[in-house]
Amino acid sequence: MPTGVAMRDAREQLFDAAERVLLRDGPNALTSRAVTTEAGCAKGVLHRHFADFDDFLMELVLDRIGRIDHQAAALRESAGTGTVAGHLADALTVLFGSVALSIIGLITARDELRARLRRARPPGVPVLTEATAMIASYLTAERDLGRIAPDTDVDTLALTLIGTGHLLFAGREGVPPESEAVGRIVNTVVAGVV
């Protein structure tokens, strides 16, 4: 491995390398050696930036959760345009078509990571909790605009959409469901409120 070579934005390079390993080989293959090999750096680089590998994984999860915040802002801004079902189907496809499913698998597979995340953030399953909040926030904006029924329980509807979306996308080994399948499920779930 190269030594003495400066890495620009080492944290992001390590996170991106971990994401590639996670997507390609799954959570059980994610080791500090696999990450640093994928990043093309010495193993010590990871340990210079993080207390230990579980600290690295926790920061990876928190970083990827931050991406949901950006998606949530864009989704809220789309309120009042297009179709509610269309925006929801797109949001689920972007969310579960990303590394999110692999991150959920990683959290499930690593006890110490789960414990650290429980201490560092609100209760719930990381990624799924933030995704549910994203959908609820969007639905609230649409309800405020009168595009969904005023008595809609947006929190329950958001949980339903995230749970259904997770089940639809999970276990497909990199082959996402067809967009028609996502649209059909979203239309069925929101039919009574749009």
Rank of each mutant, 00 (worst) to 15 (best):
P2H: 09
P2K: 13
T3F: 12
M7I: 12
D9V: 00
L14P: 06
D16V: 11
A17K: 00
V21W: 02
G26C: 10
P27V: 02
P27I: 01
T36F: 03
E38K: 14
C41D: 02
K43E: 15
G44W: 01
L46C: 05
L46W: 00
H47A: 11
R48D: 08
F50A: 08
A51P: 11
L57H: 14
L57E: 14
M58F: 08
V61G: 06
I68M: 12
Q71N: 14
R76M: 00
E77Y: 07
G82D: 04
T83W: 03
A85C: 04
G86Y: 02
A91N: 11
L92Y: 12
L92N: 13
V94C: 09
F96K: 11
S98L: 04
S98R: 01
V99E: 13
A100I: 04
G105A: 11
I107V: 15
I107K: 08
E112T: 11
E112P: 10
L113N: 01
R114P: 05
R116Y: 13
P122C: 05
V127M: 14
L128A: 07
A133H: 09
A133F: 04
M134Q: 10
L139N: 04
D144G: 03
D144N: 06
A149R: 12
L157A: 09
L167I: 01
A170D: 12
G171K: 05
G174R: 05
P177W: 07
S179I: 07
V186R: 07
V186W: 01
